[in-house]
C-alpha cells in the first residue's frame, strides 16, 4: 500500500505508462489526484453499494474523472456528477486510464 501511495504522489497526470494489466498500479479512488482519469477495476464495499455504484455508471471498466477531492470525492461519470464520501472512495479500486 505504501508503494501505491508513492506512485500516486509522483503521478500527477494520467499519461502514465500503460500498465493496464499489472496489478501494482491499482489504487483506491480516494488517493487519486484531481484531474485524474481512472479506469474502475473493482470494489471492496458491500454488495448493495456496488449495485448502486454500477447503476450510476461506476462499473468495472468504467472510465471516471476525478473533479474534486477536497470533501469526499466528486466524480465525472460520462458527464454526470457523482459525489461519494471518503469511505466509498477508498473502497473503489482504479487504475490510470490509458
Amino acid at each position: 500500500m505504501a508503494v501505491l501511495k508513492l506512485w500516486n504522489r509522483r503521478t500527477k497526470t494520467p499519461s502514465s505508462p500503460s500498465t493496464a494489466f499489472s496489478r501494482p498500479s491499482d489504487c483506491p479512488l480516494a488517493s487519486c489526484p484531481i484531474g485524474f482519469c481512472a479506469l474502475v477495476v473493482g470494489f471492496a464495499c458491500p454488495a448493495h453499494e456496488v449495485r448502486r455504484l454500477r447503476a450510476l455508471g461506476v462499473f468495472e471498466g468504467a472510465r471516471v474523472n476525478i473533479v474534486d477531492t477536497r470533501s469526499g470525492v466528486l466524480l465525472d461519470v460520462r458527464g454526470s456528477r457523482l459525489a461519494l464520501d471518503a469511505a466509498v472512495a477508498r473502497a473503489i479500486l482504479v487504475r490510470p486510464a490509458a
Binding site: 448502486r52 456528477r81 457523482l82 469511505a87
Partner: peptide
C-alpha cells in the same frame, strides 16, 4: 452507510 449521490 455510504453516501453516493448524484449532483444534478
Amino acid at each position: 452507510r455510504a453516501l453516493i449521490i448524484e449532483l444534478p
